[in-house]
Design a binder for these strands. Structure first.
Lengths: 245, 245
DNA sequence: CCGAAATGTCTAATAATGTAGACAACTATA
DNA sequence: TATAGTTGTCTACATTATTAGACATTTCGG
Protein backbone atom coordinates (compact mmCIF):
# COMPACT_ATOMS: atom_id res chain seq x y z
CA UNK A 1 0.00 0.00 0.00
CA UNK A 2 2.16 2.80 1.34
CA UNK A 3 0.00 5.43 -0.30
CA UNK A 4 1.70 8.81 -0.14
CA UNK A 5 0.23 10.82 2.64
CA UNK A 6 -0.55 13.88 0.61
CA UNK A 7 -2.41 16.93 1.72
CA UNK A 8 -3.64 19.63 -0.61
CA UNK A 9 -3.74 23.34 -0.10
CA UNK A 10 -6.34 25.92 -0.97
CA UNK A 11 -9.09 23.38 -1.07
CA UNK A 12 -11.30 24.82 1.63
CA UNK A 13 -10.24 22.13 4.04
CA UNK A 14 -7.58 23.26 6.46
CA UNK A 15 -4.35 21.30 6.40
CA UNK A 16 -4.64 20.36 10.05
CA UNK A 17 -8.05 18.85 9.40
CA UNK A 18 -6.84 16.84 6.41
CA UNK A 19 -3.95 15.60 8.50
CA UNK A 20 -6.24 14.73 11.40
CA UNK A 21 -8.36 12.68 9.01
CA UNK A 22 -5.31 10.84 7.67
CA UNK A 23 -3.94 10.09 11.13
CA UNK A 24 -7.35 8.94 12.28
CA UNK A 25 -7.56 6.51 9.41
CA UNK A 26 -4.02 5.30 10.08
CA UNK A 27 -5.03 4.60 13.65
CA UNK A 28 -8.13 2.63 12.72
CA UNK A 29 -6.03 0.94 10.07
CA UNK A 30 -3.72 -0.40 12.77
CA UNK A 31 -0.64 1.36 11.42
CA UNK A 32 0.54 2.28 14.92
CA UNK A 33 -0.35 -0.94 16.66
CA UNK A 34 3.23 -2.08 17.23
CA UNK A 35 4.18 0.81 19.45
CA UNK A 36 0.78 2.13 20.42
CA UNK A 37 2.21 5.57 19.71
CA UNK A 38 1.69 8.09 16.97
CA UNK A 39 5.00 9.10 15.34
CA UNK A 40 6.65 12.20 16.80
CA UNK A 41 5.25 15.53 15.67
CA UNK A 42 8.44 16.42 13.85
CA UNK A 43 8.32 13.17 11.88
CA UNK A 44 4.67 13.63 10.93
CA UNK A 45 5.43 17.19 9.88
CA UNK A 46 8.07 15.79 7.55
CA UNK A 47 5.80 13.12 6.13
CA UNK A 48 3.02 15.57 5.36
CA UNK A 49 5.31 18.38 4.32
CA UNK A 50 3.92 20.88 6.78
CA UNK A 51 5.05 22.74 9.84
CA UNK A 52 5.13 21.06 13.21
CA UNK A 53 2.49 23.48 14.54
CA UNK A 54 0.07 22.35 11.87
CA UNK A 55 0.55 18.75 12.96
CA UNK A 56 -0.01 19.85 16.53
CA UNK A 57 -3.37 21.32 15.55
CA UNK A 58 -4.33 18.00 14.01
CA UNK A 59 -3.24 16.04 17.08
CA UNK A 60 -5.06 18.46 19.33
CA UNK A 61 -8.26 17.78 17.40
CA UNK A 62 -7.75 14.03 17.73
CA UNK A 63 -7.01 14.39 21.44
CA UNK A 64 -10.26 16.33 21.68
CA UNK A 65 -12.05 13.35 20.19
CA UNK A 66 -10.41 11.14 22.78
CA UNK A 67 -8.55 9.22 20.11
CA UNK A 68 -5.03 10.05 21.26
CA UNK A 69 -3.36 11.49 24.31
CA UNK A 70 -0.10 13.43 24.29
CA UNK A 71 2.36 13.16 27.15
CA UNK A 72 5.14 15.65 27.37
CA UNK A 73 8.52 14.04 26.99
CA UNK A 74 7.17 10.68 25.91
CA UNK A 75 5.02 11.10 22.84
CA UNK A 76 1.44 10.78 21.73
CA UNK A 77 -0.35 7.57 22.59
CA UNK A 78 -3.25 6.00 20.76
CA UNK A 79 -6.17 5.75 23.16
CA UNK A 80 -8.85 4.12 21.06
CA UNK A 81 -8.92 2.63 17.61
CA UNK A 82 -11.91 0.46 16.89
CA UNK A 83 -14.99 1.23 14.96
CA UNK A 84 -18.08 -0.49 16.26
CA UNK A 85 -19.21 -3.15 13.82
CA UNK A 86 -22.92 -3.03 13.16
CA UNK A 87 -24.45 -6.14 11.69
CA UNK A 88 -27.11 -5.60 9.04
CA UNK A 89 -28.87 -8.89 8.84
CA UNK A 90 -32.40 -9.94 8.07
CA UNK A 91 -33.03 -9.67 11.77
CA UNK A 92 -32.37 -5.98 11.76
CA UNK A 93 -31.66 -4.70 15.25
CA UNK A 94 -29.44 -1.78 14.42
CA UNK A 95 -28.89 -0.89 18.02
CA UNK A 96 -28.30 -4.43 19.15
CA UNK A 97 -25.99 -7.20 18.07
CA UNK A 98 -23.00 -5.24 19.22
CA UNK A 99 -21.99 -8.30 21.15
CA UNK A 100 -19.10 -7.68 23.46
CA UNK A 101 -18.01 -4.55 21.63
CA UNK A 102 -19.35 -2.11 24.18
CA UNK A 103 -20.12 -2.39 27.82
CA UNK A 104 -23.28 -0.35 27.69
CA UNK A 105 -25.59 0.67 24.88
CA UNK A 106 -28.57 2.91 25.39
CA UNK A 107 -31.06 4.65 23.18
CA UNK A 108 -32.26 7.97 24.54
CA UNK A 109 -35.63 9.29 23.48
CA UNK A 110 -35.27 12.89 22.35
CA UNK A 111 -38.74 13.70 21.17
CA UNK A 112 -42.03 12.11 20.30
CA UNK A 113 -44.95 13.27 18.24
CA UNK A 114 -48.04 12.04 16.48
CA UNK A 115 -48.32 13.47 13.02
CA UNK A 116 -49.60 12.67 9.56
CA UNK A 117 -46.98 11.19 7.26
CA UNK A 118 -46.56 11.32 3.50
CA UNK A 119 -44.07 10.57 0.76
CA UNK A 120 -41.29 8.10 1.57
CA UNK A 121 -42.60 7.27 4.97
CA UNK A 122 -46.18 6.52 3.95
CA UNK A 123 -45.01 4.52 0.97
CA UNK A 124 -42.58 2.52 3.08
CA UNK A 125 -45.17 1.71 5.71
CA UNK A 126 -47.77 1.08 2.99
CA UNK A 127 -50.33 3.41 4.46
CA UNK A 128 -52.34 6.23 2.90
CA UNK A 129 -50.59 9.63 2.83
CA UNK A 130 -51.95 11.79 5.62
CA UNK A 131 -52.38 8.92 8.08
CA UNK A 132 -51.21 9.65 11.62
CA UNK A 133 -48.09 7.89 12.87
CA UNK A 134 -45.96 7.98 15.99
CA UNK A 135 -42.65 9.71 15.37
CA UNK A 136 -39.76 9.08 17.74
CA UNK A 137 -36.32 10.69 17.63
CA UNK A 138 -33.52 8.84 19.35
CA UNK A 139 -29.83 9.05 19.99
CA UNK A 140 -28.02 5.77 20.60
CA UNK A 141 -24.77 5.65 22.51
CA UNK A 142 -22.24 2.96 23.30
CA UNK A 143 -20.27 3.47 26.47
CA UNK A 144 -21.36 7.07 26.57
CA UNK A 145 -20.31 7.96 23.01
CA UNK A 146 -23.14 8.73 20.64
CA UNK A 147 -22.93 6.51 17.57
CA UNK A 148 -26.23 7.13 15.82
CA UNK A 149 -29.32 9.27 15.81
CA UNK A 150 -32.55 8.18 14.25
CA UNK A 151 -36.02 9.29 13.33
CA UNK A 152 -38.56 6.48 13.50
CA UNK A 153 -42.17 6.17 12.42
CA UNK A 154 -44.62 3.56 13.66
CA UNK A 155 -48.26 2.90 12.75
CA UNK A 156 -50.21 4.32 15.66
CA UNK A 157 -53.00 1.80 15.66
CA UNK A 158 -50.81 -1.20 16.17
CA UNK A 159 -48.26 0.18 18.59
CA UNK A 160 -50.01 2.81 20.69
CA UNK A 161 -47.47 2.89 23.50
CA UNK A 162 -44.17 2.74 21.61
CA UNK A 163 -42.95 6.03 23.05
CA UNK A 164 -43.42 4.98 26.67
CA UNK A 165 -41.84 1.61 26.05
CA UNK A 166 -38.85 3.03 24.22
CA UNK A 167 -38.34 5.62 26.92
CA UNK A 168 -38.50 3.02 29.67
CA UNK A 169 -36.58 0.21 27.97
CA UNK A 170 -34.01 2.22 26.02
CA UNK A 171 -34.35 0.01 22.97
CA UNK A 172 -36.71 -0.27 20.02
CA UNK A 173 -36.38 -4.03 19.84
CA UNK A 174 -37.41 -4.34 23.48
CA UNK A 175 -40.25 -1.89 22.96
CA UNK A 176 -41.55 -3.99 20.06
CA UNK A 177 -41.38 -7.05 22.29
CA UNK A 178 -43.35 -5.19 24.96
CA UNK A 179 -45.95 -4.36 22.32
CA UNK A 180 -46.29 -8.03 21.51
CA UNK A 181 -43.89 -8.26 18.55
CA UNK A 182 -40.93 -10.36 19.63
CA UNK A 183 -39.37 -10.60 16.19
CA UNK A 184 -39.12 -8.43 13.12
CA UNK A 185 -37.21 -8.44 9.87
CA UNK A 186 -35.76 -6.01 7.38
CA UNK A 187 -37.85 -5.27 4.32
CA UNK A 188 -35.56 -2.75 2.67
CA UNK A 189 -32.50 -0.70 3.51
CA UNK A 190 -30.79 2.06 1.59
CA UNK A 191 -27.47 3.59 2.49
CA UNK A 192 -26.09 6.99 1.68
CA UNK A 193 -23.00 8.74 3.01
CA UNK A 194 -22.84 12.52 3.26
CA UNK A 195 -21.58 15.34 5.41
CA UNK A 196 -23.38 15.77 8.70
CA UNK A 197 -25.79 18.67 9.01
CA UNK A 198 -25.84 21.01 11.98
CA UNK A 199 -28.37 18.99 13.96
CA UNK A 200 -26.40 15.78 13.50
CA UNK A 201 -23.16 17.49 14.46
CA UNK A 202 -24.76 18.49 17.73
CA UNK A 203 -26.52 15.20 18.49
CA UNK A 204 -23.55 13.01 17.67
CA UNK A 205 -20.96 15.46 19.01
CA UNK A 206 -19.06 15.61 15.73
CA UNK A 207 -16.94 18.34 14.28
CA UNK A 208 -17.97 20.06 11.04
CA UNK A 209 -16.94 18.21 7.94
CA UNK A 210 -17.67 14.93 9.66
CA UNK A 211 -19.42 12.16 7.78
CA UNK A 212 -22.65 10.34 8.52
CA UNK A 213 -23.99 7.18 6.96
CA UNK A 214 -27.73 7.50 6.54
CA UNK A 215 -29.63 4.23 6.54
CA UNK A 216 -33.24 4.41 5.45
CA UNK A 217 -34.88 1.19 6.51
CA UNK A 218 -38.33 -0.34 6.49
CA UNK A 219 -38.83 -3.20 8.93
CA UNK A 220 -41.74 -5.57 9.07
CA UNK A 221 -43.27 -8.29 11.19
CA UNK A 222 -42.62 -11.94 10.27
CA UNK A 223 -45.53 -11.75 7.81
CA UNK A 224 -43.88 -8.91 5.94
CA UNK A 225 -46.26 -6.20 7.14
CA UNK A 226 -44.29 -2.96 7.65
CA UNK A 227 -44.09 -1.90 11.27
CA UNK A 228 -41.30 0.67 11.30
CA UNK A 229 -39.81 3.29 9.02
CA UNK A 230 -36.43 4.39 10.30
CA UNK A 231 -33.91 6.97 9.14
CA UNK A 232 -30.75 6.31 11.10
CA UNK A 233 -27.61 8.41 10.82
CA UNK A 234 -24.40 6.80 12.01
CA UNK A 235 -21.27 8.72 12.90
CA UNK A 236 -19.19 7.29 10.09
CA UNK A 237 -15.87 7.30 11.88
CA UNK A 238 -17.27 5.28 14.74
CA UNK A 239 -18.91 2.43 12.90
CA UNK A 240 -18.47 -0.24 10.28
CA UNK A 241 -21.54 -1.83 8.76
CA UNK A 242 -21.37 -5.53 8.22
CA UNK A 243 -23.82 -6.93 5.74
CA UNK A 244 -24.87 -10.44 6.61
CA UNK A 245 -26.66 -12.94 4.48
CA UNK B 1 -37.72 19.06 7.64
CA UNK B 2 -36.54 22.62 7.12
CA UNK B 3 -33.36 22.01 9.08
CA UNK B 4 -31.59 25.27 9.82
CA UNK B 5 -28.82 25.74 7.36
CA UNK B 6 -26.08 26.46 9.83
CA UNK B 7 -22.40 26.79 9.10
CA UNK B 8 -19.70 26.89 11.74
CA UNK B 9 -16.51 28.85 11.84
CA UNK B 10 -13.04 27.93 13.00
CA UNK B 11 -13.56 24.26 12.35
CA UNK B 12 -10.88 23.69 9.75
CA UNK B 13 -13.47 23.54 7.01
CA UNK B 14 -13.83 26.74 5.02
CA UNK B 15 -17.28 28.33 5.05
CA UNK B 16 -17.56 28.15 1.27
CA UNK B 17 -16.96 24.42 1.39
CA UNK B 18 -19.51 23.82 4.11
CA UNK B 19 -22.00 25.85 2.09
CA UNK B 20 -21.17 23.94 -1.09
CA UNK B 21 -21.86 20.70 0.77
CA UNK B 22 -25.20 21.97 2.03
CA UNK B 23 -26.29 23.22 -1.38
CA UNK B 24 -25.19 19.95 -2.96
CA UNK B 25 -27.33 18.00 -0.54
CA UNK B 26 -30.28 20.35 -1.12
CA UNK B 27 -29.95 19.66 -4.82
CA UNK B 28 -29.89 15.89 -4.46
CA UNK B 29 -32.70 16.27 -1.95
CA UNK B 30 -34.85 17.85 -4.64
CA UNK B 31 -35.29 21.15 -2.83
CA UNK B 32 -34.88 23.17 -6.02
CA UNK B 33 -36.85 20.92 -8.32
CA UNK B 34 -39.75 23.34 -8.79
CA UNK B 35 -37.73 26.05 -10.42
CA UNK B 36 -34.63 24.13 -11.41
CA UNK B 37 -32.71 27.08 -10.07
CA UNK B 38 -30.57 27.61 -7.00
CA UNK B 39 -31.78 30.65 -5.00
CA UNK B 40 -30.04 33.95 -5.81
CA UNK B 41 -26.63 34.46 -4.26
CA UNK B 42 -27.86 37.27 -2.06
CA UNK B 43 -30.64 35.08 -0.67
CA UNK B 44 -28.28 32.20 0.06
CA UNK B 45 -25.89 34.62 1.74
CA UNK B 46 -28.74 35.65 4.01
CA UNK B 47 -29.75 32.08 4.80
CA UNK B 48 -26.25 31.04 5.73
CA UNK B 49 -25.35 34.29 7.41
CA UNK B 50 -22.29 34.95 5.28
CA UNK B 51 -21.11 37.38 2.67
CA UNK B 52 -22.26 37.04 -0.90
CA UNK B 53 -18.68 36.43 -2.04
CA UNK B 54 -18.45 33.40 0.21
CA UNK B 55 -21.57 31.96 -1.41
CA UNK B 56 -20.05 32.67 -4.79
CA UNK B 57 -17.02 30.56 -3.85
CA UNK B 58 -19.33 27.72 -2.94
CA UNK B 59 -21.28 28.00 -6.20
CA UNK B 60 -18.05 28.18 -8.17
CA UNK B 61 -16.99 24.87 -6.63
CA UNK B 62 -20.32 23.28 -7.52
CA UNK B 63 -20.10 24.68 -11.05
CA UNK B 64 -16.66 23.10 -11.23
CA UNK B 65 -18.20 19.75 -10.38
CA UNK B 66 -20.73 20.29 -13.14
CA UNK B 67 -23.59 20.32 -10.68
CA UNK B 68 -24.79 23.84 -11.41
CA UNK B 69 -24.29 26.48 -14.06
CA UNK B 70 -24.52 30.22 -13.47
CA UNK B 71 -25.87 32.53 -16.15
CA UNK B 72 -25.35 36.22 -15.76
CA UNK B 73 -28.60 38.07 -15.35
CA UNK B 74 -30.70 34.95 -14.93
CA UNK B 75 -29.47 32.94 -12.03
CA UNK B 76 -27.81 29.64 -11.28
CA UNK B 77 -29.35 26.51 -12.75
CA UNK B 78 -29.19 22.99 -11.44
CA UNK B 79 -27.52 20.78 -14.04
CA UNK B 80 -27.54 17.35 -12.43
CA UNK B 81 -29.01 15.84 -9.32
CA UNK B 82 -29.33 12.08 -9.19
CA UNK B 83 -27.40 9.50 -7.30
CA UNK B 84 -26.99 6.09 -8.90
CA UNK B 85 -28.64 3.34 -6.88
CA UNK B 86 -26.40 0.30 -6.41
CA UNK B 87 -28.07 -2.94 -5.41
CA UNK B 88 -26.21 -5.09 -2.90
CA UNK B 89 -27.83 -8.45 -3.14
CA UNK B 90 -26.67 -12.00 -2.66
CA UNK B 91 -25.83 -11.93 -6.34
CA UNK B 92 -23.25 -9.24 -5.85
CA UNK B 93 -22.46 -7.52 -9.12
CA UNK B 94 -21.48 -4.12 -7.86
CA UNK B 95 -20.90 -2.73 -11.29
CA UNK B 96 -24.02 -4.20 -12.76
CA UNK B 97 -27.67 -4.02 -11.88
CA UNK B 98 -27.77 -0.35 -12.66
CA UNK B 99 -30.73 -1.08 -14.85
CA UNK B 100 -31.79 1.90 -16.90
CA UNK B 101 -30.02 4.37 -14.69
CA UNK B 102 -27.12 4.97 -16.99
CA UNK B 103 -26.68 4.55 -20.69
CA UNK B 104 -23.18 3.20 -20.50
CA UNK B 105 -21.15 1.63 -17.74
CA UNK B 106 -17.55 0.60 -18.15
CA UNK B 107 -14.80 -0.63 -15.91
CA UNK B 108 -11.34 0.50 -16.93
CA UNK B 109 -8.34 -1.56 -15.92
CA UNK B 110 -5.72 0.70 -14.36
CA UNK B 111 -3.10 -1.76 -13.29
CA UNK B 112 -2.46 -5.44 -12.80
CA UNK B 113 0.08 -7.35 -10.81
CA UNK B 114 0.82 -10.75 -9.40
CA UNK B 115 1.92 -10.53 -5.81
CA UNK B 116 1.81 -12.43 -2.53
CA UNK B 117 -1.07 -11.44 -0.29
CA UNK B 118 -1.45 -11.47 3.47
CA UNK B 119 -3.68 -10.25 6.27
CA UNK B 120 -7.26 -9.36 5.34
CA UNK B 121 -6.94 -10.51 1.78
CA UNK B 122 -5.48 -13.93 2.51
CA UNK B 123 -7.96 -14.50 5.31
CA UNK B 124 -10.88 -13.47 3.10
CA UNK B 125 -9.82 -15.73 0.26
CA UNK B 126 -8.95 -18.49 2.75
CA UNK B 127 -5.47 -19.02 1.39
CA UNK B 128 -2.12 -19.16 3.15
CA UNK B 129 -0.44 -15.78 3.71
CA UNK B 130 2.27 -15.28 1.12
CA UNK B 131 0.38 -17.02 -1.68
CA UNK B 132 0.47 -15.25 -5.03
CA UNK B 133 -2.73 -13.61 -6.30
CA UNK B 134 -3.73 -11.50 -9.24
CA UNK B 135 -4.33 -7.90 -8.24
CA UNK B 136 -6.41 -5.67 -10.50
CA UNK B 137 -7.16 -1.99 -9.99
CA UNK B 138 -10.21 -0.62 -11.76
CA UNK B 139 -12.18 2.56 -12.16
CA UNK B 140 -15.85 2.17 -13.03
CA UNK B 141 -17.76 4.94 -14.75
CA UNK B 142 -21.37 5.50 -15.68
CA UNK B 143 -21.96 7.75 -18.65
CA UNK B 144 -18.40 8.98 -18.39
CA UNK B 145 -18.51 9.93 -14.72
CA UNK B 146 -16.36 7.82 -12.44
CA UNK B 147 -18.44 6.33 -9.65
CA UNK B 148 -16.10 3.85 -8.04
CA UNK B 149 -12.55 2.61 -7.95
CA UNK B 150 -11.61 -0.81 -6.71
CA UNK B 151 -8.71 -3.06 -5.88
CA UNK B 152 -9.45 -6.73 -6.53
CA UNK B 153 -7.63 -9.94 -5.70
CA UNK B 154 -8.20 -13.29 -7.38
CA UNK B 155 -6.62 -16.70 -6.77
CA UNK B 156 -4.15 -17.10 -9.58
CA UNK B 157 -4.52 -20.84 -10.02
CA UNK B 158 -8.19 -20.77 -10.74
CA UNK B 159 -8.47 -17.64 -12.87
CA UNK B 160 -5.18 -17.26 -14.74
CA UNK B 161 -6.48 -14.83 -17.37
CA UNK B 162 -8.67 -12.49 -15.33
CA UNK B 163 -6.66 -9.42 -16.29
CA UNK B 164 -7.01 -9.97 -20.03
CA UNK B 165 -10.71 -10.74 -19.72
CA UNK B 166 -11.44 -7.73 -17.57
CA UNK B 167 -9.49 -5.51 -19.92
CA UNK B 168 -11.34 -6.82 -22.94
CA UNK B 169 -14.82 -7.11 -21.48
CA UNK B 170 -14.85 -4.11 -19.15
CA UNK B 171 -16.59 -6.02 -16.40
CA UNK B 172 -15.59 -8.42 -13.67
CA UNK B 173 -18.83 -10.36 -13.91
CA UNK B 174 -18.24 -10.97 -17.61
CA UNK B 175 -14.62 -11.87 -16.97
CA UNK B 176 -15.72 -14.48 -14.42
CA UNK B 177 -18.15 -15.87 -16.98
CA UNK B 178 -15.34 -16.07 -19.52
CA UNK B 179 -13.30 -17.97 -16.94
CA UNK B 180 -16.10 -20.48 -16.58
CA UNK B 181 -17.85 -19.05 -13.52
CA UNK B 182 -21.25 -17.78 -14.68
CA UNK B 183 -22.57 -17.04 -11.20
CA UNK B 184 -21.12 -15.94 -7.89
CA UNK B 185 -22.46 -14.78 -4.56
CA UNK B 186 -21.52 -12.51 -1.70
CA UNK B 187 -19.84 -14.11 1.27
CA UNK B 188 -19.29 -10.98 3.33
CA UNK B 189 -19.41 -7.23 2.88
CA UNK B 190 -18.35 -4.48 5.22
CA UNK B 191 -19.03 -0.82 4.68
CA UNK B 192 -17.17 2.17 5.99
CA UNK B 193 -17.49 5.83 5.04
CA UNK B 194 -14.56 8.21 5.24
CA UNK B 195 -12.89 11.13 3.54
CA UNK B 196 -11.29 10.31 0.22
CA UNK B 197 -7.51 10.13 0.11
CA UNK B 198 -5.41 11.80 -2.54
CA UNK B 199 -5.42 8.83 -4.89
CA UNK B 200 -9.19 8.48 -4.71
CA UNK B 201 -9.67 12.19 -5.26
CA UNK B 202 -7.73 11.88 -8.49
CA UNK B 203 -9.27 8.64 -9.75
CA UNK B 204 -12.86 9.64 -9.01
CA UNK B 205 -12.34 13.30 -9.90
CA UNK B 206 -13.53 14.53 -6.53
CA UNK B 207 -12.69 17.68 -4.65
CA UNK B 208 -10.87 17.48 -1.32
CA UNK B 209 -13.12 16.82 1.62
CA UNK B 210 -15.28 14.54 -0.49
CA UNK B 211 -16.58 11.30 0.93
CA UNK B 212 -16.09 7.73 -0.21
CA UNK B 213 -17.92 4.63 0.89
CA UNK B 214 -15.48 1.74 1.12
CA UNK B 215 -16.98 -1.69 0.63
CA UNK B 216 -14.75 -4.61 1.53
CA UNK B 217 -16.29 -7.69 0.00
CA UNK B 218 -15.48 -11.34 -0.36
CA UNK B 219 -17.34 -13.14 -3.13
CA UNK B 220 -17.52 -16.84 -3.71
CA UNK B 221 -18.66 -19.41 -6.21
CA UNK B 222 -22.03 -21.13 -5.70
CA UNK B 223 -20.31 -23.65 -3.40
CA UNK B 224 -19.11 -20.89 -1.11
CA UNK B 225 -15.46 -21.06 -2.14
CA UNK B 226 -13.98 -17.54 -2.16
CA UNK B 227 -13.04 -16.33 -5.63
CA UNK B 228 -12.63 -12.57 -5.17
CA UNK B 229 -11.53 -10.12 -2.53
CA UNK B 230 -12.58 -6.60 -3.48
CA UNK B 231 -12.08 -3.21 -1.88
CA UNK B 232 -14.37 -0.83 -3.72
CA UNK B 233 -14.54 2.89 -3.01
CA UNK B 234 -17.68 4.67 -4.21
CA UNK B 235 -17.92 8.42 -4.65
CA UNK B 236 -20.48 8.92 -1.90
CA UNK B 237 -22.31 11.81 -3.48
CA UNK B 238 -22.93 9.84 -6.66
CA UNK B 239 -24.38 6.65 -5.26
CA UNK B 240 -26.94 5.14 -2.97
CA UNK B 241 -26.49 1.54 -1.84
CA UNK B 242 -29.62 -0.54 -1.74
CA UNK B 243 -29.43 -3.64 0.41
CA UNK B 244 -31.59 -6.43 -0.91
CA UNK B 245 -32.65 -9.56 0.83
C1' DC C 1 23.16 12.82 36.55
C1' DC C 2 23.44 14.01 31.84
C1' DG C 3 21.80 14.28 27.30
C1' DA C 4 18.74 12.92 23.61
C1' DA C 5 14.13 13.04 22.31
C1' DA C 6 9.76 14.29 22.84
C1' DT C 7 5.78 17.66 23.87
C1' DG C 8 4.38 22.61 25.56
C1' DT C 9 4.44 27.57 24.92
C1' DC C 10 5.53 31.88 23.17
C1' DT C 11 6.37 35.61 19.50
C1' DA C 12 6.36 37.21 14.83
C1' DA C 13 5.78 37.05 9.83
C1' DT C 14 3.26 35.36 5.76
C1' DA C 15 -0.52 33.19 3.20
C1' DA C 16 -5.26 31.97 2.72
C1' DT C 17 -10.24 33.05 3.81
C1' DG C 18 -13.93 35.98 4.61
C1' DT C 19 -16.20 40.68 4.74
C1' DA C 20 -17.68 45.00 2.74
C1' DG C 21 -19.01 47.98 -0.76
C1' DA C 22 -19.34 49.72 -5.41
C1' DC C 23 -20.36 49.15 -9.95
C1' DA C 24 -20.55 46.71 -14.56
C1' DA C 25 -23.03 43.38 -17.54
C1' DC C 26 -26.75 40.71 -18.65
C1' DT C 27 -31.83 38.95 -18.58
C1' DA C 28 -36.54 39.27 -18.29
C1' DT C 29 -40.67 41.77 -17.85
C1' DA C 30 -43.84 45.61 -17.68
C1' DT D 1 -37.28 51.25 -23.43
C1' DA D 2 -37.02 51.57 -18.57
C1' DT D 3 -36.44 48.97 -14.50
C1' DA D 4 -35.80 45.40 -11.19
C1' DG D 5 -33.27 41.44 -10.37
C1' DT D 6 -29.49 38.74 -11.19
C1' DT D 7 -24.46 37.32 -11.88
C1' DG D 8 -19.45 39.16 -12.81
C1' DT D 9 -15.53 41.88 -11.35
C1' DC D 10 -12.80 44.91 -8.84
C1' DT D 11 -10.59 47.10 -4.63
C1' DA D 12 -9.65 47.32 0.27
C1' DC D 13 -9.47 45.39 4.58
C1' DA D 14 -10.24 42.03 8.61
C1' DT D 15 -9.79 37.53 10.31
C1' DT D 16 -7.96 33.00 10.42
C1' DA D 17 -4.54 29.46 9.12
C1' DT D 18 0.17 28.31 8.38
C1' DT D 19 5.03 28.85 8.78
C1' DA D 20 9.31 29.85 11.30
C1' DG D 21 12.19 29.96 15.13
C1' DA D 22 13.45 29.92 19.98
C1' DC D 23 13.26 27.95 24.27
C1' DA D 24 10.97 25.57 28.35
C1' DT D 25 9.51 21.20 30.30
C1' DT D 26 9.14 16.32 30.78
C1' DT D 27 10.56 11.44 30.07
C1' DC D 28 13.72 7.89 29.42
C1' DG D 29 17.98 5.43 28.94
C1' DG D 30 22.99 5.17 29.34
Amino acid sequence: MNAKKAVERQTGVALWRQIADLIRSSISNGDYDQTGMVPPEIVLAGQFGVNRHTVRSALAALADEGLVQAIQGRGTMVQRKERLSFPISRRTRFSQGLGGQARETVAKLLSQAVLPVAGDVAAGLRIAPGTDCIQLSLVSSADGRPVSCSTNFFPIGRFPHMAEHVEKLGSITKAFAAEGLPDYVRISTELVARHADAEELALLRLSPGAIVIEATAVNGDPDGVPVQFARTRFAADRVKLKIET
